[in-house]
Design a binder for these strands. Structure first.
Length: 686
DNA sequence: CGTCGTGGTAAGGGTAATTGTGTCCA
DNA sequence: CTGGACACAATTACCCTTACCACGAC
């Protein structure tokens, strides 16, 4: 966003607003904002001279570090009528001088009080009326709904948290405040006027929701972690003493009020734990049906007062009752069927079909409707989450995610499984490290592929006639034992790179086996007849005669290699064809015709060996897939910038969790730390 | 005095992640 | 028999919304 000119005496940083930053020979930094440029950001109806606030910030992570100088300036216009202004400031530390001189301070923003509501943190996006409304009542919401407003609910996405953190950071810098907790817990209402409104920019959430989120984020008595038995005992005593005065109980325990409240909900003197007895299940079902006026066999997933249910069941808490009902009992009673692998594929396809921009927009009720193996909408949602979690860096991959899962990854114990439409395998064998691979389909006994030291070989294979799986095994022992735990799978159409890297082998990324799956290859590109797919295509190039292949294999019988261990087996890459996916999809009532047509190809193609075609992959997403051997990401082969959003701020909740996990690891059993005491004092001030 | 905006509490429905447990299999 | 891997049930820390209320400004 900025250009930096450097000469012996001055450095000029130009920004989108053409504010210039210069440095004179004495080390003073001079900011200049010409009048015409300033006008650009004035609102049309601005009458009073705007109160300009210059905010210098670095996009560097370290800008939030205390040790890094942060320059924040408030500047008034030179005169009432002149919109231009000039600021001269002296950098307070040498480091700051250096940074400016080196051009690492890259962001200059001009904020004007009158403009706060017009400038969103994301740029030109209009500020939602929703985010400026406090509304907590149904009437408030109805009113906004009637005006055509829609807003976000549910869990905050990573993007939203980023926006929020960014807004807070900007607010702090603009006012020269170091710590947001000063505003949240120490300032009076009057002093923090506009704080919540300002930081709600770009967030299509009610102000109240933003307020709650911020309070939680910065309350260090939140996220303290697991309750110790001592804490539980103390909690019970405090509960008897103070009743439902959660604030008092929380203060005594060094926990937030909501935390102790939630913990008490889990405690019930009469509660059983562990497996439910038949009697309990029977009672739960009776109570649920009675309270919801439904009949046994009816599907009941909403409108249940679980507190009331638990009261009647007697031996279980409301959470236990809810969990048991939604995850098992209701499904069992209404004649549900077992969840299969096909269901799992179907789930991914259906979510892809929905084409929703945000995971929160998925209507799980609708998705679960008429799906007998789905235990409840809530259960289905958690199923989706389980699938997503199989990808190690799923948190860094923002939704819309379904296309990412179309080359569906499932890492089982011994193989990486890729479910993908028509595919195009493209091997980039490690330089000088020949590898032997085996391409298997259910209609063939296996196609051994030996990749010699030639730079790159592309294998093109298309969907076989019948639904089947294609498995690619990396077989070369010396390769496997040393470096081929690293397998990269690139899928061009969904633009996904799946990469597995062994922890014990992070230095060998250069020699990793690379596999490209092109899912949008036209059948006309591959005129070879299907019968070319035969095992003897490269019979003499099999380097390891001890390898044996079961002639007919299926999912349960992945090829076994008589003299190879599980490390080697793990290197299999399995590709399912679109027919299989379509087939399973068609089993469902509402088979998406557009999906089917998109994934089914007419012709059959055979594998051919070609020279690698130069291929450009834009906007690809990289998923790091954990392996049974504890794969980790290697930074040298992954262009992180193309994958992960550049994040310069950390959600205090997440940060705290990370710190907490370290603390737990080192000092178990100290429920109230000195930190929490400090926070308690802090909050008491509040 | 009534209304409105803001900020606060408690209750309860919910999610996400971890932990516990039973089962299978080498 | 045993230990490891796995799936799934159970648990729990934390999240979010809703209803309701207090209080000061107007």
């Amino acid at each position: 966003m900025s250009t930096v000119e450097e000469d012996s005496d001055t450095v000029t940083v130009e920004t989108v607003n053409s504010v210039t930053l210069t440095q004179d020979t004495e080390g003073n930094l001079i900011l200049h904002c010409p009048q015409n440029e300033a006008d650009e950001i004035d609102s049309e109806d601005s009458i009073e001279p705007p109160h300009k606030r210059l905010c210098l910030s670095s996009e560097d992570d370290q800008s939030i570090d205390d040790s890094t100088p942060c320059i924040s300036v408030v500047a008034l216009p030179l005169s009432e009528n002149d919109q231009s202004f000039e600021v001269t400031m002296t950098a307070t530390t040498e480091v700051a001088d250096d940074e400016v001189t080196e051009g690492t301070v890259t962001q200059i923003q001009i904020l004007q009080n009158e403009q706060l509501d017009e400038i969103s943190p994301l740029g030109n996006e209009e500020v939602s009326a929703v985010s400026q409304a406090w509304f907590t009542t149904k009437e408030d919401k109805d009113s906004l709904t009637n005006k055509g407003h829609k807003w976000k609910q549910g869990m905050w996405s990573k993007e939203e948290i980023d926006i929020l953190m960014n807004n807070i950071e900007r607010y702090l810098k603009a006012r020269g405040i170091k710590d947001a907790t000063e505003i949240i817990f120490e300032m009076s209402k009057d002093e923090r006027k506009d704080f919540y409104r300002t930081i709600a920019w770009g967030l299509n959430r009610p102000l109240f929701a933003v307020y709650r989120r911020v309070l939680r984020m910065y309350d260090d008595r939140n996220h303290v972690g697991k309750y110790t038995p001592e804490e539980i005992e103390k909690l019970k005593e405090l509960r008897i003493k103070h009743g439902n005065d959660w604030a008092t109980i929380g203060a005594a325990l060094g926990r937030s009020a909501s935390s102790v409240k939630d913990r008490c909900r889990l405690m019930k003197d009469t509660c059983n734990t562990g497996k439910w007895t038949e009697e309990e299940e029977k009672r739960l079902a009776e109570v649920v049906h009675e309270l919801t006026s439904t009949e046994p066999g009816d599907i009941v997933t909403q409108g249940v007062s679980w507190a009331a249910v638990a009261e009647r069941v007697g031996t279980r808490s409301e959470k236990q009752c809810r969990s048991k009902w939604l995850n098992y009992l209701n499904w069992k009673q209404s004649g549900g069927t077992e969840w299969t692998k096909e269901d799992e594929i179907n789930l991914i396809l259906r979510i892809a079909e929905l084409d929703v921009a945000d995971e929160n927009d998925i209507n799980w009720d609708l998705l679960a409707e008429g799906w007998s193996s789905v235990r409840s909408p809530q259960w289905l949602r958690s199923k989706w989450w389980t699938i997503k979690r199989q990808i190690a860096n799923h948190k860094d991959v923002s939704f819309p995610a379904p296309p990412l899962f179309l080359p569906y990854l499932l890492l089982r114990s011994e193989r990486l499984e890729v479910l993908c439409p028509n595919f195009h395998l493209h091997f980039c064998p490690p330089t000088g490290t020949p590898g032997t691979y085996l391409l298997q389909t259910s209609s063939s006994q296996g196609l051994p592929l030996t990749l010699t030291a030639s730079p790159t070989v592309t294998l093109t294979a298309a969907a076989p006639a019948s639904p089947e799986q294609i498995i690619v095994h990396a077989l070369s022992p010396e390769h496997l034992l040393n470096t081929s735990d690293n397998v990269t799978v690139q899928c061009h159409t969904p633009r996904v790179i799946i990469q597995t890297v062994a922890t014990e082998d992070i230095t060998s990324s250069i020699s990793q086996a690379e596999l490209t799956v092109d899912s949008d290859i036209q059948s006309s590109d591959f005129p070879e007849p299907p019968d070319a797919l035969e095992a003897d295509t490269f019979p003499d190039e099999i380097h390891h005669p001890k390898m044996t292949v079961e002639p007919s294999f299926n999912d349960a019988h992945v090829s076994k290699f008589s003299d190879q261990n599980s490390t080697e087996l793990m290197n299999s890459v399995m590709v399912r064809t679109e027919e299989e996916i379509s087939d399973t999809d068609l089993k469902q009532e509402e088979s998406p015709s557009d999906l089917a047509s998109a994934y089914v190809t007419e012709g059959l193609e055979s594998p051919t060996i070609e020279e690698q075609v130069d291929q450009t992959i834009d906007d690809e997403t990289i998923l790091i897939v954990p392996s049974p051997h504890g794969f980790i990401q290697t930074s040298d082969v992954i262009d992180a910038e193309s994958v992960l959003p550049l994040t310069t701020l950390t959600d205090p909740i997440l940060q705290h969790h990370q710190e907490e996990s370290n603390i737990i690891g080192s000092s178990l059993g100290s429920p109230v730390s000195e930190d929490s005491k400090d926070v308690e004092d802090l909050v008491n001030c509040h």
